[in-house]
Design a protein around this nucleic acid. Structure first.
Lengths: 205, 205
DNA sequence: ATATTATTGTAACCAAAGTTACGAAAATGA
DNA sequence: TCATTTTCGTAACTTTGGTTACAATAATAT
C-alpha cells in the first residue's frame, strides 16, 4: 500500500514525499511494551502484532495492525501515560511510515480532511476495542463462540460464516484453547445450534 | 458539575447557554443497547453505567461514566455501526448535557481548543479500554488481581494500595466472583505476595 | 448499648475449560 | 503417487474458579 492510498490521507493536501518510510524483516520488534511513543506509525506492508505479556508470562496479542492502520495514535493526545500498550512485532516483511508527534499535530490543525480521517480512525479503533471487551466478557466458551458468530453474521451478511483461518487461529482469536473450541463446536452441533466443516460454520437458529 | 467545568470545554469559546440539559432519576435507562446514536452526551451529575448483556443473559458493565465524561463520542465519527455498545443506565439522580451530532461536529471545526479537548478525551477513552482488555486477558484470578495491583501501584505511587471500595465492588471490577477474590487473596497472603486488610492491599514484592 | 445490616472469610461442591496426548484426516510438496 | 506436515477431532485427566451457604466481623442506626 502506498501512502496516498491510506485512509488517513484521503482527500488531504499534505506533502507525502517528506514522510519517512522504514522497512523491517519478519518477527522484528519495532517497539517494546511500555516504551514511550514519540511518533505515529502507519502500516504500509505486512502486519504488526501488538503483543503484551500476561503476568503468567504467556503472551497474548492485543491487536493486529493491517496495512493502512495506525499505531501510537492513541498516545499522541492522551493525557495519561504515553507508552505503547504492547510490543510491536512484525509479521512478514513490513513497511511502515513514521510521522513525529509534533508534525502529526500540525497536520491535524492544518488540514480538516486529515483531521476527519484521523477522528474516524480513532473512533473505529475505540469501537473495535469495545467489541473485543464484549467478547472477553462472555463468560463461557459457547458464549464466546456465539458472540463471534453473530458478529460475523452481521459482517458477512449470511448465516454461513466463512472462517478465513484455521481452527487454531480462531481459538486464539476467541481467547480459548483449540481443544476447547473443538469440544464446544461438537456440542453445539449436537444441540442443533450450528453445522460446521473445515472452512465454514453455519448458524441454524 | 457545571458545563463550563467540563474538560471538553476547557479554554473553549463555545456558547454553552444553548446546550440542552436533561435530568433523570436513578436506575433510569437513557438509551438501549444497539440503538442508534444521534448526539453526544456529557455526564454532569450522577453516574451512568454502560451495561451490555452476555448471551447467557447475565449483564455486565462495560464502562462507568463519571461527571465530565462523554458518551456517543466514539460513534459520531466512526465509519462502523453507529449504535450504543450497551444500555445507558443512571446511577443516582443524573444530569446530562446533550449536543446533537451535527452541532458537535461544527464545534470541532470551529474551535481548536474544543477539538484538542475532544481528541484528548477520545484518546484517553481508547487508552482505558486498552487497559481493560489487558485485565480481561489475564488468564487466572491471581493474574487479574496482580495486574490491578501493579496498575494501582503506579497510580497511587505506593506499594500500599488503598481500595476505595468494598471487596464486592473490587471483585466485580476485576470480573470475578467475590468468594474467588477472597480465596485468592488468602492464598497470595500465604505465598508472601501481599498483606491485606479491609481497606488496603500491600504488595510485598 | 444493642439491634440490625453490610461486608468479609471460609468451606464444600461442582461444572467448565485448560492440558496433554494421540490418531485420523486433509493439505502440501517432492 | 507417496511421503511429510499440518490441521483437526477426541478422550482422559486435572485445575481453576464459579456457586451456594453460612458464620464471623465490622459498620451503622436506633
Amino acid at each position: 500500500m502506498r501512502l496516498e492510498e491510506c485512509k488517513l490521507f484521503r482527500n488531504s493536501r499534505i506533502d507525502l514525499s517528506k514522510i519517512e518510510i522504514l522497512e523491517f524483516p519478519t518477527n522484528f520488534t519495532i517497539e517494546i511494551e511500555d516504551n514511550e511513543s514519540t511518533y505515529v506509525g502507519i502500516v504500509l506492508e505486512g502486519k504488526i502484532h501488538v503483543k503484551a505479556y500476561s503476568l503468567a508470562g504467556k503472551d497474548f496479542t492485543i491487536n493486529t495492525l493491517e496495512p493502512g492502520q495506525l499505531f501510537g495514535d492513541v498516545l499522541i493526545f492522551g493525557s495519561k501515560i504515553k507508552t505503547f500498550p504492547g510490543s510491536l512485532i512484525t509479521k512478514g516483511k513490513t513497511k511502515i511510515a513514521i510521522i513525529p508527534n509534533n508534525e502529526f499535530e500540525q497536520y491535524l490543525f492544518y488540514d480538516n480532511d486529515f483531521l476527519k480521517n484521523f477522528l474516524e480512525m480513532l473512533s473505529d479503533k475505540a469501537f473495535e476495542m469495545n467489541i473485543k471487551s464484549k467478547l472477553l466478557s462472555q463468560d463461557s466458551v459457547r458464549d464466546k463462540i456465539l458472540f463471534y458468530l453473530y458478529q460475523e453474521k452481521r459482517i458477512q451478511k449470511s448465516k454461513v460464516i466463512h472462517l478465513n483461518m484455521t481452527k487454531e487461529e480462531l481459538a486464539s482469536q476467541l481467547y480459548m484453547q483449540r481443544p476447547s473450541l473443538s469440544r464446544e463446536l461438537i456440542k453445539m452441533k449436537e444441540d442443533g445450534l450450528i453445522d460446521y466443516d473445515r472452512w465454514t460454520i453455519t448458524l441454524k437458529k
